[in-house]
Write a protein that binds this DNA or RNA. Structure first.
Length: 289
DNA sequence: CGGGCCTCCTGAATGC
DNA sequence: TGCATTCAGGAGGCCC
């Protein structure tokens, strides 16, 4: 599932393959993949056609291609979205929803998404949080931990104010962006915190340890090209990541904890799975459940 | 206003 | 063997 390291890996590939090039034609498939572009697919294509891509950017799990029109092509990969840079004669994969060709006749950009939780849209660039120019739909998203403007003090103040559990907060893109189910579980394991721990009870050293874990796991996963868990995530050039080999808890139900040997446990939480070591991450006695 | 549940979707895996 | 059910989850909508 594409979280920050996966989206950043894709962004780097798209930037290498697409930056500086001018769109010469746009093909769109299923409408659902463009549902966030309110003006419809015809408008989508006409805003993109003839535009030159000036760069590829990212905040959290959102990425966008800045255009020479003060607008941006925003891509969210959802659960199963892929952005591929491929030669025009490469076979069209099932669930291909967009093909964007360029005036130099070189490699094209394709959007493929099995579950269509992701999608593409064109949006104006506006002033976002932490003094960054971002597309309209990204304006409310918090900085991610790898951004210069990320502030642990801001996050700590927000956590103090909230009445919720720590994992729910980590997954909230308005608190900190880029973290999904895999890296939330991995970070909590590194900090020896249980997912249900009440945010307002976290002490400063605990929050610091947690975000040291967040930072480390995101950087390590990025260095590994991301986590390819269900085979759906690949880079823009079709390469799988290998961080799945380094996971400590996610997807390791019943296997030994790498720290203490206790069997990793899986709980249902927020309609999804949470993986913990019951010994390293005991359920809080006073924290909310 | 904010916390948290629900929904969208497809295909692999599992159940009977 | 085949059909039905379960499971995976990002993020916005919506309810209380």
């Amino acid at each position: 599932m594409p979280e920050l390291p996966e989206v950043e890996t894709v962004r780097r590939g798209v930037e290498l393959g697409i930056s500086g090039r001018t769109v010469s034609s746009v093909w769109t498939g299923r409408d659902r993949a463009f549902r966030r572009h309110a003006a419809g697919v015809v408008d989508f294509s006409s805003r993109l056609n003839g535009r030159t891509v000036t760069g590829a950017h990212r905040r959290g799990k959102f990425m966008w291609l800045a255009l020479d029109s003060d607008e941006a092509l925003v891509a969210h990969l959802g659960m199963s979205g892929q952005l591929l840079v491929v030669e025009p004669d490469v076979e069209i994969a099932k669930h291909t929803h967009a093909r964007i060709e360029f005036s130099d006749g070189g490699r094209e950009l394709r959007f493929i998404d099995q579950r269509t939780f992701g999608g593409l849209q064109i949006e104006p660039l506006v002033q976002g949080r932490a003094d960054r120019v971002v597309p309209l739909s990204v304006a409310h998203i918090a900085p991610d931990p790898l951004e210069e403007s990320f502030s642990l003090d801001d996050v700590r103040a927000d956590l103090k104010r909230r009445k919720t559990g720590i994992k729910r907060a980590l997954l909230d893109q308005n608190l900190v962006s880029g973290i999904g189910n895999i890296y939330a579980d991995e970070s909590l394991w590194r900090a020896r915190l249980h997912f249900a721990r009440a945010t307002e009870t976290l002490r400063k050293p605990e929050t610091e340890l947690l975000f040291a874990g967040v930072d480390a796991v995101l950087r390590e996963a990025l260095a590994a090209g991301g986590t390819t868990f269900d085979g759906l995530y690949i880079s823009a050039f079709g390469v799988s990541g290998y961080f799945d080999r380094e996971l400590d808890v996610y997807g390791r139900t019943g296997l030994d904890c790498h720290r203490c040997g206790t069997q990793i446990r899986r709980d249902e939480f927020m309609n999804r799975s949470s993986h913990t070591c019951p010994k390293c991450q005991p359920r809080p006695r006073n924290g909310r459940w």
